[in-house]
Simulated scan of single mutants.
Amino acid sequence: MAVYGGGCIDDLIVLPPLPTGNGRQASITGHTAGFREPWTTEGGVPGVELGADRVLPWGSGCNANEPGWLMTGPNPDQWPVIVWRGHGNPRWALFNCGRAEFLRRLVTAEFDACPLSDLSLWGRVGAFVHHEEQERRFHAGLDPMTGEPDPYAGMFD
């Protein structure tokens, strides 16, 4: 996070810890309550007895797949990834790897099966675009992810 900050890989938003000040970007702090709510109502990962206060989002907006961490101890480098899969059964899944490893294995299709409930990022190495670059492109009339001219730019201002 210190190197790259928040941004997107295709439809997956990698959340920064705090709001960025422009009012348009989501953040971990802004998504925490919404991420914890289904953990409470649906019971979380089968077999995991930790409460909702031990889950923390790090991503959002990927076709009803919401990734986060299970805060299993004091060292964040050892927190496994959890995913709420909007169309999966069970809804919650646990992956014994960190965020960077999870993303690498997702986009290179190195899990035994796709860890998400859709295939939008499975085996597709997409570019990470920083939230500030997305904002610059948007205001320049470009598609925030591709940088190509946006034919709809300015239509909804």
Rank of each mutant, 00 (worst) to 15 (best):
Q134I: 12
V14P: 02
L119E: 15
A52F: 01
L56Y: 09
R136I: 08
A26L: 15
A52T: 09
R24P: 01
P19K: 03
P17D: 15
M1F: 11
P115F: 05
V3F: 15
M1D: 11
H131Q: 13
F102Q: 00
T108Q: 11
S117Y: 04
G141V: 04
I28G: 02
D150N: 13
L50P: 02
A153W: 00
P38D: 07
R137S: 02
G68D: 01
V129T: 10
G73N: 12
L119G: 12
Q78G: 13
T146Y: 02
A33L: 11
H87I: 14
A109Y: 01
D77S: 15
T72G: 03
Q134D: 04
P76A: 09
P16K: 00
I28K: 03
G141D: 07
M155D: 12
L121S: 00
N65E: 04
N22M: 08
L116D: 00
M155G: 04
W58Q: 05
D112V: 09
R54D: 06
W84G: 10
W84F: 15
L116A: 08
G6E: 00
G88W: 05
G147I: 04
G123C: 08
L121C: 00
E110N: 12
L18N: 14
L142K: 09
N75K: 13
G98K: 03
G6I: 07
V83L: 02
V83K: 06
N63I: 10
E49K: 14
V48I: 15
Y4V: 13
G86M: 06
V48H: 00
V107T: 12
F128W: 09
P67T: 03
A52L: 03
P67M: 07
F95V: 05
V125I: 13
R104M: 11
T40F: 07
P76T: 06
R85C: 12
G43I: 00
D10L: 03
D118K: 01
P76F: 06
L119Y: 13
E148V: 06
D53I: 07
G47A: 08
Y4L: 15
F35L: 09
G68K: 04
D112E: 15
T72V: 15
A140D: 12
E49W: 09
V129M: 02
G7F: 04
V129P: 00
L70R: 01
T146H: 05
P151F: 06
P144F: 01
F102Y: 07
R85N: 14
L94K: 12
R105V: 01
V45Y: 07
S60L: 11
H87D: 13
M155L: 15
T72D: 08
G123F: 08
A26R: 15
E49A: 15
G6M: 03
G44P: 06
F102P: 00
I13N: 10
L142E: 11
A26T: 13
P57L: 04
T20N: 12
T41Q: 11
A2M: 12
P151W: 09
W58R: 04
W69V: 05
S60M: 10
P80H: 05
T41I: 11
V3P: 08
I82F: 02
D112M: 05
L142N: 03
G34S: 12
P90T: 07
P151D: 10
P38I: 06
I28Q: 11
E66D: 14
N96Y: 13
P115T: 02
G68L: 05
P67C: 09
R124P: 03
S117A: 09
Q78I: 07
F35Q: 05
